[in-house]
Design a protein around this nucleic acid. Sequence first.
DNA 1: CTGTTAGCGCGTTCAT
DNA 2: ATGAACGCGCTAACAG
Lengths: 341, 341
Amino acid sequence: MSTILDVERESGVSKSTISRFLNGKNVTESNRIKIVAAIDKLEYQINPIASSLKTNRTNTIGILLPDVTDTFFPPIIKSLEEVLTQKGYSVILCNYQQDVKLEKQRIQFLAGKRVDGIIVASSSKTGEHIQTLLNNKIPVLLLDRQIPNLECDAVIVDNEEATYRATKVAIQKGHTKIAFLRGPDFEYTAVERFKGYVRAMKEAEILIPDGYVVQGDFVRYSCKNKFIDLMRSTNPPTLVMAGNIYIAIGVLEGIVESGMKIPEDLSVISFDDYTQVPVLKFMNFILPKFTCIRQPIEALGRRAAELILHRIEGDWEDDFVPEVVQLRTSFELTDSVADLR
Amino acid sequence: MSTILDVERESGVSKSTISRFLNGKNVTESNRIKIVAAIDKLEYQINPIASSLKTNRTNTIGILLPDVTDTFFPPIIKSLEEVLTQKGYSVILCNYQQDVKLEKQRIQFLAGKRVDGIIVASSSKTGEHIQTLLNNKIPVLLLDRQIPNLECDAVIVDNEEATYRATKVAIQKGHTKIAFLRGPDFEYTAVERFKGYVRAMKEAEILIPDGYVVQGDFVRYSCKNKFIDLMRSTNPPTLVMAGNIYIAIGVLEGIVESGMKIPEDLSVISFDDYTQVPVLKFMNFILPKFTCIRQPIEALGRRAAELILHRIEGDWEDDFVPEVVQLRTSFELTDSVADLR
DNA sequence: CTGTTAGCGCGTTCAT
DNA sequence: ATGAACGCGCTAACAG
């Protein structure tokens, strides 16, 4: 493997000029030719390690996720990777297995590796480990999940607003008995989505009966059984809203198991669109397709990449102003919501 | 951010001794104490860039996949990441979008980044870009897919043997009209799996009728319609074997759509177990569960990580002997295969 | 625009 | 076991 010194010898041009050329600066045409010829001949490739040592930039970005196997993340990884690799950055992937302790550890790991920035879907409530990075001027971008009282760039979706609007639509269609099947308390998105539902119900002055708010036992655990219990109770809802795709799948299972008809026996709205998941595309045969709140998953990844690049390549101003990009979900109304008016 | 020189000043011990200590060599107890104290005080962390420049090792491994969003890969990434991060290696993830040109480009990208090794699920037929790496003594490990005539480490499963055995079981159960729904020609696993089916049929001297081998139009495209056509033909099979999970899902869709009963109207065996996919766990309600060939997905990732580490950390002997680890799939027989005897 | 010079922060001889 | 000195390959500051 040849070095820049070999190119210097071979071309007769000084290594500084070569270095400048390699970094896109102007060089006289005659020198350019000599340099290119030498590089070609020697199959020279720049050594990014040496370069990093000098510049303090690794052209590497860490991406830290709770669980790569969650269907939500792979498409995000894909769009992230596309943008970043395109720009010459490599993506170091870390998984923290939903474990806040491991999250901190991985953050340390990435910082130790001297990444230029970190994109993280954090499970932390306080984010002091992230604050530490920011204090050290290491760019961090919160993906999908905000952390309260942390001044940090973020790319998220309008969780609260989305369920608020969806609930309102349900109410406009004449529904009052609306149940919400929610994700766990410790998940930012689960909490936000629940808030939107509550706000819409309050605004319409509809009382939420006991038992209409159902929570799965574990992360990603569909509340199928609790859902069936609810439907068999003395006062079943006319519409259920599933807080994420796993819950929606649980609802589907419950529906099939108990032989309900949609929307005759029950109306359904789900956060997340199962037809966006490649392996679930087949669910076309389940009719009618659920009304859903669709997240701009590809854009989430792309914007996250763009934003952190902007922060990395731009100047880190002293008066750091965090930028929060909130992407809008779209709402797809189907026949799965009965019109009760 | 402090350097080893700061530690030298703070501790009064020379940086060589400090360096040695950091790399696990023996140091006198008195020096050890001084060094540790200084490191603690300064919150010193070793700079891996400078270290890499000297050692030519980046403690970084590239993992190159055709498509992160394929359900098959995320669990592999997860187990890979776990093992590698544990050992201090970071994982650079690259996606080549099923595009052989992009695959080569990404391989170049990773090599340019000076990764210590590359794990790749290649789509290349010839692998000359991989041979180039090997010639340069850069360890490569083929994941899930072999490349003929390439002397390279690999971790794969017993694709051919698995379908061979499964087909034999079907035959033993009295089936002769067995159709095979296969993946595309350009996919290593699709080809291997098909071979096993053919071998078993030949061995049993069962002629495969025209139309019994069905191929999806695109990557990952379930051959649902072709499957339905086949079932409506004058000579429908009594058993179909789906070559991968996407095809199995297509079969499922076809079954639901046309109202078939399993195993009364048709027996089904699928490569891949849909209950291994988190989002498909719900499919418990589809009865009976498909008979399946289950891949040891977690082990695939783990063994791949272990093997490449072994190659990286071991000596690269002159007489390079490629190591191919073939993991066994397991076979789960359910009521989805009728006994015709 | 160019070449000379001086480090970036470590690991590694080589004597001691 | 230790410390002094050198160099990994590159970029940046300087003077021209």
